[in-house]
Amino acid sequence: MENCWFVLKQTHYPAPDVDSMRKGKPTGPISLGHVIRDLKHLDQVINAEYVEPFTRAMQIHQTKMQNFQWNHTEEGERALEASVGVPVPPAPGLTVNASIGFAFRKSVKNYWEFEHLDRYIVQPTQPYLNECLESEEVSKYVERSQKFGFWSFFMITGLIIARGGGKNTAAEAQAHEVSAGVNL
């Protein structure tokens, strides 16, 4: 079993209630114990109607981080260059080379700041995972997927909920560059 964390692109999901997660009756669209098909379709929960209640051995561990700041920069560059050489007929062995190039650069900087992050983590036991596999929704998903010879899914075992703040700035910078040259 592997763990991976990712940031949701959607910020409109309401946070689930912790007590409802413990009882197997999640109130949020994404909750601990939910099973999803893949990381590209987070809102397509396989067991949205019912989550197996957590056993005594599966406590929800809660932590809090105060005054959290995070920034992310994406940079991209595209370039195109072409050159051509043409022999000069009156002067054998002499060639005129011409070149032209274009370059485009773009960077996007996003900055988030939150008053605090609430972190909820649960560690599923093997008997719990077996019960989840036997549940009606998950077993039907596995049965349908086996027709294609391959199946996988992910279980939400940790959530970090950001509170009080949000995206502060988004700066975008672009640069264009053109180059040309001729030489003999």
Rank of each mutant, 00 (worst) to 15 (best):
G149K: 03
G165L: 06
E172V: 09
Q44G: 07
G76D: 10
V138Y: 08
E177D: 06
R22C: 00
V45F: 01
H116M: 15
Y120A: 10
W112V: 05
V35Q: 06
S135K: 09
D118E: 06
W151G: 01
N47A: 04
P16Y: 00
S179A: 14
G149I: 04
G33H: 06
G166I: 10
A162S: 10
P90K: 15
H12G: 14
M58C: 02
S145E: 05
E52G: 09
E115Q: 15
T73M: 12
Q62F: 02
V35L: 14
V7K: 04
V142A: 01
V142D: 00
L39A: 12
Y111E: 06
V84F: 03
G164I: 11
K23T: 11
P92G: 06
R163S: 10
K147C: 11
T125L: 00
I46A: 05
T95L: 11
R22S: 00
A175S: 11
F148L: 05
N97A: 12
S99V: 14
E77S: 08
E113V: 15
T27A: 04
A171L: 13
A103Q: 08
Q44D: 12
V45C: 08
S145H: 04
K109C: 14
F153R: 08
W112C: 14
G24A: 03
E134Q: 11
N47V: 09
K147H: 14
P89W: 10
L133Q: 15
Q66K: 04
K147S: 09
F6K: 01
T169L: 14
T63W: 08
S139Q: 15
A15N: 07
V7W: 02
Y120P: 02
P127F: 01
P53R: 05
V142R: 01
S20E: 07
N168W: 11
I161V: 06
